[in-house]
Amino acid sequence: MAKYVCQVCGYVYDPAQGDPDNGVAPGTPFEKLPDSWECPVCGASKADFAKEA
């Protein structure tokens, strides 16, 4: 599963880790994150993320 990088602050979403603080279980692919999900560091939207090169 691909990692995604926040283009605003550089946070990396790692599907293996998920985002447990915000109710996203480990193993959740980026594509399956709800549209309302925000970058846990800077609050950017999903659209502000790009696949890690």
Binding site: C9, V41, C42, G43, A44
Partner: peptide
């Protein structure tokens, strides 16, 4: 008013 990234989270 939250102003995330202006200029820190």
């Amino acid at each position: 008013l939250e102003t995330r990234m202006i200029h820190w989270p």
